[in-house]
Design a protein around this nucleic acid. Structure first.
Lengths: 206, 206
DNA sequence: TGCAAAATTTCAATGAATGTAAATCATTAT
DNA sequence: ATAATGATTTACATTCATTGAAATTTTGCA
């Protein structure tokens, strides 16, 4: 499993990611060609596609790992734990993962986030991945609460939490920028969602 | 405004849409080339791009009209109307628009929905449009409730409702298929969201 | 009718994505 | 140590979406 072959592949993969990040930063996403990325990582253009399915995908290298982790979390559901509690644990774990990324420099984490938020093609890809994960999470949630959670209820719960946190994060980043503030906004949005939108507007219960 | 010129353009636009729908249905989305669509509508390939910005866009011909209508609805906010009530009105209006499409045959409406749900590129585009609309709706909502609604609260409300209904619709369509049932699921999901996810799991309050 | 603006077509080019066959290279069995 | 094996990479060729520029046609109006 850890032969020269495997390690070389990991090195190439990382080289492609780093090359892409650097070039996207220097010249912009659409202005950077695949040929340039491949050249900067010292592989042929064709080889790029045996590592990533598309130009967009190179920036979502951790997507698979994230969804696996999320689904694994659902399996840790405690017997007395209601769906909203479990989902809140998942939200917090997801935010933590983003804020403290161990594999890449904070600089690169911010760069990636900026790219994903500003380049339409990347935005679309991100939303698509997120959506796919919501579908899978919904299914997993129903399995974690057999008989207790109807299809519409599960979809509503997952969709509402994901939608609220997503929009809160983006709105926060658009307004000021700090990752920590965005995470804080996401948490607030999640709490509002659990409590119910009805609590908005009139009561103003602080 | 209603000169020969305008009407001809509308006819060409419609011809492109219909040709695309037919070909996508017959051969599949990726198997259909722009050249074929243009040929079927009797225009040059280049002309396609003066009507639609991309191959994907031909299936989202009503996106602009929808968002305009939605934003206009926000402006009809009544003085005593709380945010969740206004948002529920918007949700219902959006569902109605989808279920009763006057411009196209129900057959084509279903076809389009099937395409958007199954073709990754279209799914991504749809999610991107939806997301953009949520950002605009969030901004409009804050303007409709000046001083009363914080940025996080507005984002949470819009995101939660949009996320819940979206996932409920897709889950419903994946399970059985009828548009009416999907709309019903969306309404239920919206109500759950307004009431709060906390109401799930234990209480089971019918 | 005849001209100016708008729309369309033609032509050319770029770049992402994919298929294919030849060439490389780590690993394994002899 | 070496040849066979299988995985990877490369070089090459092609398709197709998308865009720019110039040439041409169509339409609205003086």
């Amino acid at each position: 499993m850890v032969g020269i072959r495997e390690r070389k592949k990991q090195r190439t993969r990382r080289a492609l990611i780093q090359a892409a990040l650097r070039l996207f930063d220097e010249k912009g996403y659409e202005e950077t060609t695949l040929a340039e990325i491949a050249a900067a990582a010292d592989v042929s253009t064709r080889t790029f596609f045996s590592y990533f399915a598309s130009k967009e995908d190179v920036l979502f290298f951790d997507a698979a790992a994230r969804i696996e982790t999320t689904l694994a979390l659902v399996a840790t559901r405690r017997p007395d734990e209601a769906p909203p509690e479990l989902l809140m644990r998942i939200v917090r774990a997801g935010l933590a993962w983003t804020v403290e990324d161990q594999d890449f420099r904070p600089e690169d984490v911010r760069l990636r986030m900026r790219l994903v938020m500003t380049v339409p093609a990347l935005q679309a890809r991100a939303l698509h991945l997120l959506f796919d994960n919501q579908l899978r999470l919904t299914r997993a949630l129903r399995e974690a609460y057999p008989g207790e959670l109807g299809p519409v209820e599960a979809a509503a719960a997952v969709g509402a939490l994901a939608g609220a946190t997503k929009l809160a994060v983006v709105a926060s980043l658009n307004r000021d920028g700090s990752l920590e503030q965005a995470a804080e906004a996401a948490l607030q949005a999640a709490e509002i969602t659990v409590r119910g939108l009805a609590s908005l507007g009139r009561p103003a219960a602080r």
